[in-house]
Simulated scan of single mutants.
Amino acid sequence: MADKIYGVIGATSLVGAALLPRLVASNCRVAAFSRRKPESENPNLQPGSLVWNPKGVEITHWISLAPIWVLAELLPMLEARGARKVVVLSTTSLFTKSRSESPAEQRLVEGIRTSEAMLAEWAGKHDIEWVVLRPTLIYGLGKDRNISEIARMINRFGFFPLLGEGVGLRQPIHAEDVAQACQAALDLPEIKNRAYNISGSEQLSYREMVLRIFRCMDKQERLVSIPRWAFKMVLLLLRRFRRFQDWSVAMVDRMNQDMVFDHAEAEQDIGFKPRPFRLEVGDLP
């Protein structure tokens, strides 16, 4: 019989899809929580090792994959369930969007900052250990909103627009590597009450990142460099498609800004060893 039970919030998320099989394979009993209906088919999960949205079960160890800005509404539930350690997924957007001119992105940054501070205060008050992990651009399993969105745009239009040359550096991190970091941070008793930035092992330009998506899709590489004023017009057209309604000028501007983070502390403390950006067919929709 499995000898551990871990609570996973946001279990139907991208990282959740990578994390649940890892926990089950580690002989953990998993209490998975999600507001969305879970996918019933998953051959990697052993029968009886996973329970969805259980009631009245005491759970001491938790991983929250839900957006950190909804954390406040989750804390009373964690406390009531007897939480003793909580690993929370945040984001490096806390830093990369801090100088954004977009009011929406400024509100997002403030929400992240407030939520991280609230977690530390709440945990200290109730003698609960906490760890915050801030990943960079997450991709994988064909379910992300980063690499997969670029791939969908290439499929729809046959090209990809770049603002200028797209020279800003990126460190894409695979969802499975994020899941590994979450499990390690929860399992290691000495890791507590601190935050880590986690990133992919390879730095590459935004332009090269897009070119690798073309190659993985076995499509002719067609990049179109567009000046900023023209990109605004392109965005107006893209927003007619529901999938691209969240695209903004601020997001496009970052194509030429470096967004890289050192993960040496996570490597040293939790054995974090991310892969380079090597796309496989299963990583795209």
Rank of each mutant, 00 (worst) to 15 (best):
A266L: 00
G142P: 06
P189G: 10
P227Y: 05
P189H: 07
G200A: 02
D246F: 14
L188F: 08
T12P: 04
T96H: 10
A185Q: 06
A175D: 07
S98W: 03
G271R: 01
K219A: 15
A66Y: 01
F241W: 15
V86G: 05
A2I: 13
I270H: 03
T60R: 09
M255K: 00
W130S: 11
V15F: 04
Y196S: 10
A230G: 14
I226M: 06
L141Q: 13
M118F: 03
A117Y: 01
T136S: 15
S102N: 15
P274Q: 04
W130D: 09
V252G: 02
G140K: 10
N193C: 14
V109W: 12
S201D: 13
L14A: 05
G7K: 00
A181E: 08
I191D: 11
T91C: 15
R242K: 14
I270S: 02
L71F: 06
A25L: 12
S102T: 13
T91P: 08
W229N: 04
R36S: 10
A66G: 07
S115A: 11
F241S: 15
G16N: 05
A17Q: 14
E265G: 00
G56K: 02
S98A: 10
L162E: 08
I173V: 14
Q220V: 15
I5H: 00
L94G: 01
K55W: 01
N256A: 01
V249L: 11
P276K: 11
E202C: 06
V109H: 11
D283L: 13
V178P: 14
L162A: 05
L75V: 06
P285L: 13
L89A: 07
P285H: 12
E41N: 15
N193D: 15
K125C: 08
P67A: 14
L169V: 08
R228L: 04
I138R: 05
F157K: 02
L74K: 01
R222Y: 12
R212M: 01
G140C: 10
V224N: 07
L279F: 03
A32D: 00
H263Y: 15
E41D: 15
